[in-house]
Every structure is written in structure tokens, then in C-alpha cells.
Simulated assay, not measured.
Amino acid sequence: MKFAAILCVMLGLPVHGFAQADAGAQAREAAVMLSAAATQLDKADKARDRVKALTQTIRAYELGLGAMRSGLRQATVREDQLSRQLRSRDGEVAQLLGVLQSMGGNTEPTVFFHPQGPTGTARAGMLLAELTPTLNARAAQLRTDLEDVQALRMLQQDAADQLQLGLSEVQKARVRLNRAMAERTDLPTRFTADPVRTAILISTTETLDAFAGGLSQITEGEEPLTLPPLDDRIGGLPLPVQGIVLRGANEPDAAGIIRPGIIVATRPGALVTAPTAATLRYVGPLLDFGNVVILEPRTDTLFVVAGLATVYGAAGQVIGEGTPLGLMGGISATQTDTSASTDGDGAGNAASETLYIEVRQDNIPQDPKNWFRTDKDG
């Protein structure tokens, strides 16, 4: 796949003073993921297999696009540094060119007639002989810097083109994922949610506390279920979405509102997945949170994920780790995300969407940072 190949070339390019170890590692990982996902997708003949392959594809594109943006940022910074250095040395360059031109192509120092006679001429010749290697070295460094600027400019143009290609491809994968999720009918069901009682609970509760406390009252025919143990994974669970923590638990927002969950800044259209196997307790709009998915990974614990534009699944279904929960907003299901911004992940339109994540144990809010890996992009 051309996108994956360009990704690795771009982020592995050895440019003087241009260290991209982390971004390069991400690019290589993304390329491997894309290759594996493409193979899975070719072999997929069921909706379940297509969902898995498309989830892997979108995750790989998101990782690769993040790495490419990081590489572009570094390339832009490095080009700017080199350009400023060259501009500040315009006078030095002019003097250097003058001296080198006066020296011509001679391999030996040019003999100048000195007003002090042969002794002065000899001294000047000796001084010039000492300066010649230094002048040549400085000229070579300037030439290297100019070549680096030219290489960086070409790199950025190619990378920008591939970034647009990647954005187009990931949006196509999102559309295909929407279709595959709609076609999937093989998920096990633990209970059936009563729509009337659900509507009543939504209309009569004003807080997430009250709604979470009443979830057990809206189910019918609930069966016991044993999911994989969670205790040894607490603190190491992946964030449901790729992004950075914008606000921690109990930190007031701009309006002074304090919530017990964390807010993660994400890019438009980012894929949201289940951090672990769980039962879907609720899927849909709720209070002022927008679209909400409430997961139950074990009997006494709930994960609340709020702020999605598109949600998948239905209450009562049992899902595995990594199952798509939905997509963030910012772009429609049929619109191509043309935002090729290389701004930082927490700035401007680059991370314009926010996902709210809350953890409840026995309906008591817990700090999500004690459950999820939040020290780096998810």
C-alpha cells in the first residue's frame, strides 16, 4: 500500500539534526497493521470478520496519520530553523564567497603582494593557508544546510499529498465500517432492554448518578454472565479513543462545571472502541452528554463513554475488547475529512472533538486515570 510505504520512508529519512525516533516507530507499526488489516479484509466473508478488519484498518490509519503529522511538524520546525540560520548568515556567506572566488580553483594558497614586502606577503600566505580548511569546512556546512532545506521541502510536499490520501482512505473505511456494523447480527445478547421503562428512566432522571442507579430496572430476562477478569488490568486499560487527556477528573471546565470523569481531545471522525470485553448497558442519547455508551465489564463496574456522533450496538449485547462503539463527530458519514492540519494534537481543529469518560464502581465515581493508560496518546 503506497500510503504505508511513503509513511515509513518519510519518517525514517535521516536528515541532519532531524530526530524522529518515536514517530518513525509509530509509522512502522502502522504500516504493519495496515498490511495485516488488508489481508484480513481480503479474506473476510462475514460481517463479523469485516468489522474486525475494518477496525484494524481505521486504527492503523489513525496511528499512521498521527505519526505523519508529527513528522510534518518536525520537518517544518527544522526547515524554519535552517532558514533562519541561513538568513542570519547572509553577510558571512557573501564574505565567504568573495574569499573563495579570490582563491579561485588553486589547491595552494594564492600569493598576494603585501605592502610590507616579502615578509608581510609570507605572513599573509601562512595565515590564508591556515584559514583555507576552515573556510572550506564552513562552505561545506552551508551547502549541507541548503541541501537539507531543499530535501525537507520536497519531503513535506510528498508527505502532505500522502496525508490527504490517507485521510480519504480512512474515511472510506469508516463508511464501510458503518455498513458492516449494520449487517452484523451474531453478537450474543445477555438481556433485552424494555423501551418503555428505558424512556421513563431517561425522562425522570436528571443526573448520571440517578440513571446509572436505575439501569437494572429496565432489563428483561437478564442472564448471568462471566467475563474475563479485570482486576489485573486496572491501570493499564487502553483509552477507548486515540487522543490526549484535556481535563482530569473533578477539574472545572471553562463554565466552572465539575465532573468526575476525564475529557479526551480527539480528531474528527476518530474511532471509539471497547477497552475490554463488556455488556452494553445503554446505547443512545442521554441528558446533556450527547450519544452515550455505558459498558459493564463486570457486575459492580460501569464505564461511561459520552460525546460520540455515531454509536453502534444495542443494550444487552455482549462485546469483546476492541469492538467499535462508534465514531466521533466533526465529519459526516459520507464526507471526506480534508483537515490535513499538522497542528499539535491539542490545538485548534486538529483535536476539535472531545470524549467524556467516567468510571463507576458500585455507582461511585472513580478517577479514570487510575484505570486507563493516560500518559500517552491512546
Rank of each mutant, 00 (worst) to 15 (best):
P188H: 04
A315K: 13
G269A: 08
Y61N: 01
T121Q: 13
I263K: 03
A199E: 07
Q74P: 11
L246H: 15
P195D: 10
Y282H: 03
T204V: 10
M154N: 13
E130W: 09
T192I: 13
A67T: 02
L201V: 13
A67S: 10
Q20A: 04
P133H: 10
P109E: 00
T76P: 12
A38P: 11
E169A: 15
Q101W: 05
A37H: 03
A19Y: 07
P240D: 01
D80H: 15
L327G: 07
N291Y: 02
L54V: 07
A333S: 14
S83L: 06
I58P: 00
L187Y: 09
F211L: 11
S341L: 06
E358N: 15
T279D: 05
L355G: 02
G213L: 14
A137W: 04
L7S: 06
P229A: 08
M103H: 12
R123Y: 13
Q157G: 12
L135Q: 02
V272S: 01
N363F: 10
R267T: 02
A315F: 15
R190P: 01
G320A: 14
R153Y: 05
V196D: 15
E251R: 11
P285K: 09
Q366D: 11
A180E: 12
A140Q: 12
L152R: 00
P195I: 07
L97F: 07
V149Y: 00
T266I: 00
R78V: 00
